[in-house]
Design a protein around this nucleic acid. Sequence first.
DNA 1: TAGGCCATGTAACCGGTTACATGATTAG
DNA 2: CTAATCATGTAACCGGTTACATGGCCTA
Lengths: 182, 182
Amino acid sequence: MNTQTLILAILNFEDASGYEIKKQSTEGAFSYFVDISYGSIYPTLAKLEADGLVLGRSETQSGRPDKKVFSITEKGREEFVKTLTSPPAIDKFKSEFLLIAMCADLTSPEVITKAIDKRINEMEELLQVIGSLRSECDHPATQWTTSYGMHVKGADLEFLKNNRDSLIAMADDRLKLDEAAE
Amino acid sequence: MNTQTLILAILNFEDASGYEIKKQSTEGAFSYFVDISYGSIYPTLAKLEADGLVLGRSETQSGRPDKKVFSITEKGREEFVKTLTSPPAIDKFKSEFLLIAMCADLTSPEVITKAIDKRINEMEELLQVIGSLRSECDHPATQWTTSYGMHVKGADLEFLKNNRDSLIAMADDRLKLDEAAE
DNA sequence: TAGGCCATGTAACCGGTTACATGATTAG
DNA sequence: CTAATCATGTAACCGGTTACATGGCCTA
């Protein structure tokens, strides 16, 4: 899932400038499975326009900088749908937390406590974000996707809360063993 | 979570050659939140050895190529634990499936059916992998992590199965609208 | 005998991030 | 007056992948 497809996806929902695309990917409807930076957005937008997949127009605004708003073209929409049609690559995810959890016995209970509490907070925030996304948008497929997200992340949070202490105890056990060995 | 940390994590559990590290990351205990390629493993291993974080020894094998088995050094373990101590970065994940789901109304029911059934299969396989990881290893922290994985992925699969048809129906709806518009 | 697994390694490439450059406006 | 938000863009860098090179053994 490259920058090009992501931008096309966002522009398929509504017109946006590079700046607004960044916002969408960081805070908006796509934020919980996507994130792109300016350094890739602007060059890609230029390339997309050169290829005729998007069309840019300058909009003068009073009291703030001009912005260049892009809309997807028919050709762009076709290209995007074509991309959607090919079977999706398997999800990629990397989790530093899982690595730490797996090595809980190598660290201290403080480190584990901090790590898992941080995660619980993040998960709660994410659930709120998805929840508001869900209530703000009545597009059925978006509803489906956000419901999915809430279900999965809800289960995630549930496990974290129910098993927080047992993970912390593993770090404790190691300290006890250390003391016993002295 | 860079290659260096990943390799240190794997070697912290047991000695391994570059080839075996690749296997661990693709099929083994770390496979469901990690994946690295030879192109990054071998150079990193060389760098790690130069830095004294791992120690390599050649092992001659009968009937197959020699292999260079690495073990983590005390310095390497310290470095690894230090990495674990810093608060974990937020999980990264990218999902092409979610993008497709969110745009279900742009494609055909066939495409959606294929995508979701593919995902259901992958999820079932993943659950089996995690399940066998879980039963093979009685290391408490690994048990915790695999239980976590099974809980979350179980909820994921559950949602997919319960809501498969409603997503497919969204693609159908679009066809109906098209027909109505003709 | 062909293909797959074992096994190590390199070089080219690529997609993306970080940091920088620039500058106006508005809210605290 | 300062910080934040709006807004666009580039250049250097970097972490990683892909593809290639090499070669022996084992299985179908």
